[in-house]
Design a binder for these strands. Structure first.
Lengths: 252, 252
DNA sequence: GCGACTTTGTGCGATATACGAACAAAAGTC
DNA sequence: GACTTTTGTTCGTATATCGCACAAAGTCGC
């Protein structure tokens, strides 16, 4: 790509939008400038542009995003067939298991939820399509990272902030790489309260007809009701059935 | 705002992202150019910028959005306290009613879902935060439009495509304005299969401590199980309780 | 295989934008 | 209330972007 094929004003504007996610809903020009590292004058122009287009409100001091901004992200969910295709299968899966079922894809060091059938709320965080979790400590993340080559997986881990969320969280890259090998060999990943105390989950890859992993699906359950040791016995068969049902639907 | 405070390259880029929502997931340069009305060279630069930043993939012919684009919309859901604040109340409401409960805000002629507690799937469409429905034929839309001044509501209706979704859909602006008056007076709106055959819903406004309407919440139910005439008896009290519980939490 | 048509890539002049500094206006400090 | 610090806005200029026109590469029918 040539230098001149890059619209830096556009890139700067996107950076400004993302700055809202990292803090609270209101940003002054100076705050946005600090978060993005861009000049105050440049940030001001971007924010005024957003306001002019109705993506943001401006009270003379603070800018806030408006719901119109959701159109941008929703364009992906509406335009990609995968979420819509997975949803009915997750509904069935969730009903059979009596637990929440979700689907996600990998985006850098994070997994992004693209569909979900919730049964009851067991997590402190509220997960909806678009929500993100660190890949290294989520069952679907383990499955998706295991699908990468070892060098790619190492690169992702190197960029990840390997935080000790609970006493059980695996944070040693070598342990994780070893776990990815096991996941590849056995075809599933189980997380026992590594993300949040009281939450277990089990995930399998969603593969297309060529056997390439394009997403992951999981079932989450409260550790109090379903001990980690029971996750496999109770849910692996259901997940594998869903996986098998999806494979022929995913051409390319 | 001065002319020079507007970054047209940014505005053009956002238009390009939105172009993906209207059609399928893959867009060529020429298609994107037609959809946006922008010059091909401009669209090409915007798309290459998106690809360079990881928001899009490019195979040399077609561009597709990547899940990274969800960061933009999700910045709103993460940054705005309203969705997180409403969610637990919707969960309770949904459980008590035994039906799906949702919350939405107005964006132009559409309502945008910002939180949802689903019980079972009764609609053909899959609703998640970020989903949009035309305001004129949705119960929450009626509530939100009723909160506007009559001239504002007329302006929105004038811009709306008043489609006859079912035999019961109200499409006459005068009928709708009259209905908004009733909604204002009685404090709730009921939709009897105007959006989709088999679906009834009832909505009330969410007001802040000054009495300004800032969102709407609703309960949806299959018409086969809960006839429209019963919606009010069964669910209005629950909705009003939720409304009352929320009001003191919404300062400003 | 060969035109007619569509789509994509690129050079260039005119125009619009970003930068950094300077100034003005608040906000915070003592 | 004077001082310092932070924030918002304006301005001139160097630079980057836009849209046009043309060239190149596909795509189609036959």
């Amino acid at each position: 790509m040539r230098e001149t094929d890059f619209v830096s004003g556009f890139a700067r504007g996107l950076k400004v939008i993302e700055a809202f996610g990292e803090t609270r809903q209101r940003l002054s020009i100076a705050e946005a400038s600090k978060l993005t590292g861009l000049d105050r004058a440049t940030v001001r122009r971007s924010l005024l542009t957003l306001a002019e287009l109705g993506y943001a409100d401006y009270d003379g001091k603070f800018f806030t995003l408006t719901p119109k901004i959701l159109r941008l992200g929703h364009a992906y969910l509406a335009a990609t067939p995968l979420p819509a295709l997975l949803q009915p299968h997750l509904d069935t899966l969730s009903e059979k298991a009596g637990q929440s079922a979700s689907a996600s894809v990998l985006d850098g060091t994070e997994i992004v939820y693209i569909a979900r059938a919730a049964q009851r709320r067991v997590m402190s965080i509220n997960l909806t399509p678009g929500s993100r979790l660190p890949a290294y400590c989520a069952s679907m993340g383990r499955v998706l990272l295991a699908a990468l080559s070892e060098s790619e997986a190492r690169a992702v881990l190197a960029r990840s902030e390997l935080k000790q969320n609970t006493a059980k969280t695996k944070t040693d890259p070598e342990d994780l790489i070893e776990e990815f090998r096991r996941v590849r060999a056995e075809g599933y990943a189980i997380i026992d309260q590594e993300l949040e105390i009281g939450l277990c989950s089990i995930a399998v890859p969603v593969e297309n007809d060529r056997g390439e992993t394009i997403a992951a699906i999981n079932i989450g359950a409260p550790a109090a009701l379903v001990p980690a040791a029971e996750m496999k016995v109770r849910y692996l068969k259901l997940l594998k059935e869903t996986q098998a049902a999806l494979r022929p639907l995913l051409r390319r």
